[in-house]
């Protein structure tokens, strides 16, 4: 599997580079420029140096949003990855039932994000929602517009409902790539289901799980539309995640400078975590340390 060393391969990558760089680099540079200035209008801006960074880093509401965000993304990974893998393991290996499962699993993924919020508003409202009505009917007071805990539970439920299928689809892809011979060998050795999972299925799923974990981490860390539509960040600030707070600042108050500084810090946090995940996941199971 040794790849040929050839710098001419760059020519194949150039179109990708150009099209991504166009949308990536110029806006990024602009945001860095914003973060150093106090902007009142197109022609009225003043250089303020690192002032915005200082302000943002010492903003206690931002710290709150960051802790909530870390807790949220942590829970997302802890719930969705094992659940997704379990679903993939339970799915039939082939046949029309497998196709049916794939199609059904993909449905939540194909709904625009703000519509996801709308679905869950309709589903959880105490008056017209099936879930809200049922839970209240059981004698448990439930209202995600008033109680922070209920809001959290609703947002988590929505997130798990929305994205676990992605993990399941990717894990399923990984499982299907395992040659039948491996399982036969395991049967001959009399390996238990757990041993098969630990020594065959899990290592073979490493690649897809890397994709799944990274995607789920990045997207959940940047989550905006769904909770915004569902709870608007409330009640109080209880479901104000980083992106919601950022939009409140950037659009609501039109504080471009601090919002830009905030974005850069935000980006650096995601970058660090993703890089660490990427490095760790690349190495787990391959033997080299």
């Amino acid at each position: 599997m040794d790849k040929t060393h050839d710098n001419k391969a760059w020519f194949l990558v150039i179109p990708v580079f150009v099209i991504v760089a166009f949308s990536a680099i110029i806006p990024l540079m602009t945001v860095v420029n914003y973060s150093l200035q106090d902007i009142f209008g197109p022609n009225e801006r003043y250089f303020v140096g690192t002032e915005w960074f200082r302000e943002v880093l010492n903003d206690s509401r931002l710290h709150g949003a960051l802790y909530r965000q870390l807790l949220f993304s942590g829970l997302v990974l802890l719930i969705e990855v094992p659940l997704g893998v379990a679903i993939a393991l339970a799915m039939p290996p082939r046949g029309w039932t497998a196709s049916l499962c794939l199609v059904l699993l993909a449905i939540p993924l194909l709904i625009p994000w703000n519509v996801i919020g709308t679905i869950w508003i309709i589903f959880t409202r105490p008056d017209i929602g099936l879930l809200g009505r049922t839970i209240n009917g059981l004698g448990i007071p439930f209202d995600h517009t008033a109680a922070p805990l209920d809001a959290w539970v609703t947002v988590m439920l929505m997130e798990v409902w929305h994205w676990t299928p992605l993990v399941a689809l990717l894990a399923y892809a990984g499982l299907r790539a395992i040659p039948e011979a491996y399982y036969q060998a395991a049967r001959i050795d009399g390996a238990s289901a757990w041993a098969v999972f630990k020594y065959i299925q899990l290592p073979k799923m490493r690649g897809v799980l890397t994709i799944a974990i990274l995607l789920r981490f990045m997207d959940s860390f940047l989550i905006y539309a769904e909770p915004f539509v569902l709870t608007g960040g409330g009640p109080g600030n209880s479901t104000t995640f980083l992106s919601i707070y950022l939009v409140k600042q950037a659009v609501g108050q039109f504080d471009l400078g601090p919002a830009a500084a905030f974005s850069i810090i935000y980006f650096l946090i995601v970058l660090l975590f993703s890089w660490v995940f990427y490095q760790v996941l690349q190495r787990v199971g391959t033997g080299d340390k």
């Binding site: 110029i26 540079m29 602009t30 860095v32 420029n33 914003y34 150093l36 902007i39 197109p42 801006r45």
Partner: peptide, 12 residues
């Protein structure tokens, strides 16, 4: 509209 400043230009 990119709102360039000396320090950020130097940085890039």
């Amino acid at each position: 509209w990119m709102a360039w400043t000396g320090p950020s230009a130097t940085f890039f």
